[in-house]
Simulated scan of single mutants.
Amino acid sequence: MATLQVVSPAEYRSARLSLLEKEKEATRVLDTLAAERRKLPAVEITKPYKFTAVAKDGEKKTVSLSDLFFGRRQLIIYHFMFDPSWDAGCPSCSVMGDSFPALEHLNSRSTSVVAVSRAPIEKIDAYKKRMGWSFPWVSSYGSDFNYDLHVSQDEAIQTIEYNFRDKDELQKAGQDYFAKGEQPGNSVFYMRDGKTGEQGKIYHTYSTYSRGGEHLINTFGWLDMTPLGRQDGESGHGGLGFRRRDEYTKDELKGLH
Rank of each mutant, 00 (worst) to 15 (best):
E44P: 05
E44T: 10
E44H: 10
E44I: 08
I45M: 14
I45L: 13
T46W: 03
T46S: 13
K47Y: 07
P48Q: 06
P48I: 09
P48R: 02
P48Y: 02
Y49F: 12
Y49A: 03
Y49N: 09
Y49P: 01
K50N: 06
K50F: 04
F51D: 02
T52K: 11
A53K: 06
A53T: 02
A53L: 00
V54R: 15
V54N: 00
A55H: 10
A55V: 00
K56H: 03
K56F: 00
D57H: 09
G58R: 10
G58W: 07
G58M: 08
E59H: 06
E59I: 01
E59W: 02
E59L: 04
E59K: 15
K60V: 04
K60Q: 13
K60L: 10
K60N: 14
K61M: 06
K61H: 05
T62D: 12
T62M: 09
T62I: 12
V63I: 10
S64L: 04
S64G: 07
S64T: 15
S64D: 12
L65G: 06
L65F: 10
S66H: 02
S66M: 04
L68Y: 08
L68R: 00
L68E: 08
F69T: 10
F70A: 14
F70P: 00
G71R: 04
R72Y: 02
R72T: 05
R73V: 02
Q74T: 11
Q74K: 15
L75R: 01
L75D: 04
L75H: 01
I76Y: 12
I77K: 07
I77M: 05
Y78I: 13
Y78V: 09
H79D: 08
H79Q: 12
H79W: 11
F80R: 10
F80V: 06
F80N: 14
M81S: 13
M81Q: 11
M81F: 08
M81A: 14
F82C: 10
F82S: 07
F82H: 13
D83S: 13
P84G: 09
P84I: 04
P84E: 08
P84C: 02
S85G: 03
S85E: 05
S85K: 14
W86V: 00
D87C: 02
D87S: 14
D87G: 15
D87V: 11
A88M: 14
A88W: 12
G89K: 07
G89M: 12
G89H: 02
C90V: 07
C90R: 13
C90A: 12
P91I: 02
P91M: 07
P91Q: 01
S92N: 00
S92E: 06
C93S: 00
C93I: 07
S94E: 15
S94M: 15
V95F: 01
V95W: 03
M96V: 13
G97M: 14
D98Q: 13
D98P: 01
D98F: 00
D98H: 03
S99K: 00
S99V: 04
F100D: 03
F100T: 04
P101D: 03
A102R: 11
A102H: 08
A102T: 08
L103D: 03
